[in-house]
Amino acid sequence: MNRDMESWCNAVADNVNELGRQMQKFQRFQQNYEIDKQIEAMQQLNEKLASNAISYTNLILAAGYAGYLTFWATLSGKVPAWLFSLSGFLILTSLTLFICWEITKMVWGAIHMRRVSKLLAGQKGPQIVAQYQAAYASYQKKTNIVWVFFLVPTVVTGLGAAFALIGFFALNLWKLTFS
């Protein structure tokens, strides 16, 4: 009887220990799940913030181009022809590059979405989310690389146009003030 009791106690202890190990595994799983959910929430928030920032930037750029071109159109005959032509060329180059980037991004995004839709068509389960996120991350990475090649010349030519006119007006102001 003593052996039976000891055997039973050992079996109970083993079961309790096993339950403890299972609980620890479950707690680690739960912690990892919560961390994954937090990471996912942060990624979604980051994407939303980036989207809002892009929308705001595009609005500011559109207003800037409209304002600059409106002002530039009033300068005909008031600035030297070479400066009028140079500033017009630079701002239109900048605007054209910006528009080309937006068109490229739109077409590239549509092609990407079509490709991802075909890839994921008919699939079910949680792996589809991971595959979509991986495809989106790859698209974003490629987009960010190409974006720089449009951004730099767009900014340089746009600011070049503005600084050409600012320089002209600053020089004239200097001459009027100190002559």
Rank of each mutant, 00 (worst) to 15 (best):
L75T: 00
T70C: 15
A121I: 01
K48G: 00
Y136E: 07
L90Y: 02
T74P: 01
G125Q: 00
L69G: 09
V116Y: 01
A110L: 05
Y65S: 06
Y65K: 02
F89L: 13
W72E: 05
V116C: 03
G77T: 02
W72Q: 12
G77Y: 00
A73M: 13
K142P: 05
K48I: 02
R114E: 14
L90C: 01
M106T: 14
G158A: 09
P80Y: 04
Q30V: 13
T57E: 07
V152M: 10
V148Y: 06
V107G: 01
K48H: 05
Y56C: 12
L86G: 01
T154Q: 14
Y68K: 02
K25N: 06
I39A: 12
K105P: 00
V155Q: 07
Q43A: 14
S117F: 04
V107S: 04
Q43C: 11
Q38P: 07
G109T: 11
K141R: 15
S51N: 08
A66N: 02
L61S: 15
N46V: 07
S55K: 04
E40A: 13
T93G: 05
Y56H: 08
L95M: 07
H112T: 04
S138T: 13
L45T: 14
N144C: 06
M106W: 15
R114D: 12
I145Y: 14
Q22M: 15
A53Q: 04
T104L: 04
K118T: 08
I60N: 02
T143Q: 13
E47R: 03
R115E: 10
L75G: 03
L69T: 11
V129Q: 11
K25H: 03
A110M: 10
N46H: 08
Y65D: 05
K142C: 11
Y68P: 00
W82K: 14
Q44E: 13
V152Y: 08
F150P: 00
Q140M: 15
I39H: 09
T96P: 06
I60F: 03
T70L: 15
N32P: 00
L95D: 03
I91W: 09
R28F: 08
L59N: 08
S55G: 03
Q31F: 07
L83E: 14
Y56M: 11
F150L: 03
K142F: 12
V148N: 06
Y132A: 15
T70K: 09
Q22K: 09
W101Y: 14
K105C: 11
L159Q: 11
A62F: 14
K25S: 08
T154I: 06
I39W: 11
Q127I: 06
D36V: 04
G88S: 05
M113K: 11
Q123M: 12
A41I: 02
Y33I: 00
I39L: 14
T154V: 14
V129T: 05
E34M: 10
T74D: 04
K37S: 10
I111A: 10
Y33D: 08
N46T: 11
A81I: 01
Q131A: 07
D36L: 06
A50E: 09
G125E: 00
V148K: 12
T57Q: 07
S55M: 04
Q140T: 13
L86D: 04
S138F: 15
A137Y: 09
M23W: 08
Y56N: 04
S85N: 03
I91D: 04
